[in-house]
């Protein structure tokens, strides 16, 4: 069965990636985890994602396209105007994902528990939806 595991991180966790003193340990933990999954032969696909401020959120309402800076909370949009301010430091956002091919949920949860983000923020496991019947 395929599961997507989503690694959630806070703004502080994202900042660790470019912290000269702490990045080596932080990225080393991730590299060790991903290598272990690769050696177990369960990775279908996966990637880390650039931080939320590099993202752009697209909405189309009544034929009008509005764009929003990914670093801003996805609060109510009125006439394309963003209503909410920047993210609080504690807000978690997806920092990476993997699709795993594993026998069952328990195995997927076991791997999710080993992810560094499970210890400092959170990791979510979602079953991949089976193909829609033709």
């Amino acid at each position: 069965m395929q599961y997507m595991i989503l690694f959630n991180e806070t703004a502080r966790d994202f900042a660790l990636r470019s912290d000269p003193t702490r990045a080596p340990a932080h990225m080393g933990a991730w590299a060790a985890y991903i290598d272990a999954m690769a050696k177990a032969g369960i990775i279908v696909h996966g990637n880390g994602l650039m931080p939320p401020e590099t993202g752009t959120i697209v909405r189309v309402r009544n034929g009008v396209r509005s764009l929003q800076d990914g670093a801003l909370q996805d609060g109510a949009l009125q006439d394309g105007a963003v209503q909410d301010g920047p993210y609080a430091d504690s807000k978690e956002q997806v920092g990476g994902y993997f699709i795993l091919e594993v026998p069952d949920l328990d195995t997927a949860l076991e791997w999710a528990a080993r992810s560094p983000s499970a210890s400092y923020a959170s990791t979510e496991v979602r079953p991949v939806m089976p193909p829609m019947p033709q």
């Binding site: 060790a32 080993r114 210890s119």
Partner: peptide, 11 residues
């Protein structure tokens, strides 16, 4: 050691 670290759940 790296592989063991990758399989650890305890930070």
């Amino acid at each position: 050691f790296r592989h063991a670290a990758g399989l650890s759940t305890d930070p």
